[in-house]
């Protein structure tokens, strides 16, 4: 089986860099797609809606982003999802420990789990291997 494709949707450059490196260390074959905000990701998905080879298996979605944030991404993604050639597992990733954010994420059926930053390599390993 080919290594999973992971979409990192986060405006934080440092998080993007550290996460990608940890993921690659776990599995050098991993295909990592980086998006600076929800809009960029949505555009990419809609352009490749019929192409399972380019669509992610796992989405790591930040809440707080400029322009289209995590919540808005989920709203638009829900409409797009039915036509998507691949159904990814979505993890919300945020530094927020505010129960409002955590509950909101857990109530959303599209979200598999809510992960609090910083994310350790061990946690990433579980995510990737769970897939």
């Amino acid at each position: 089986m080919a290594a999973p494709i992971i979409a990192l949707i986060d405006d934080d450059d440092v998080f993007q860099l550290t996460s990608s490196r940890m993921l690659r260390a776990i599995n050098p074959e991993l295909n990592i797609n980086q998006f600076a905000n929800g809009a960029e990701a949505l555009t990419f998905f809609s352009e490749n809606i019929n192409n399972p080879d380019l669509l992610p298996d796992i989405i790591l979605l930040d809440i707080n982003m400029p322009y289209v944030d995590g919540w808005m991404f989920l709203q638009d993604f829900e409409k797009m999802k039915v036509n998507l050639a691949k159904q990814p597992t979505i993890y919300m990733v945020s530094s927020s420990i505010d129960p409002t954010d955590i509950n909101k994420a857990k109530e959303n059926e599209q979200v598999e789990d809510y992960l609090i930053k910083p994310i350790t390599k061990a946690k990433f390993e579980v995510l990737v291997n769970h897939q």
């Binding site: 934080d12 927020s96 420990i97």
Partner: peptide
């Protein structure tokens, strides 16, 4: 709360990882 949750905790998390 929001500012502390996102705007402050986020770079702190990065520092720990780095």
């Amino acid at each position: 709360t929001q500012i502390v949750s996102h705007n402050l905790r986020s770079p702190v998390g990065n520092i720990i990882t780095l």
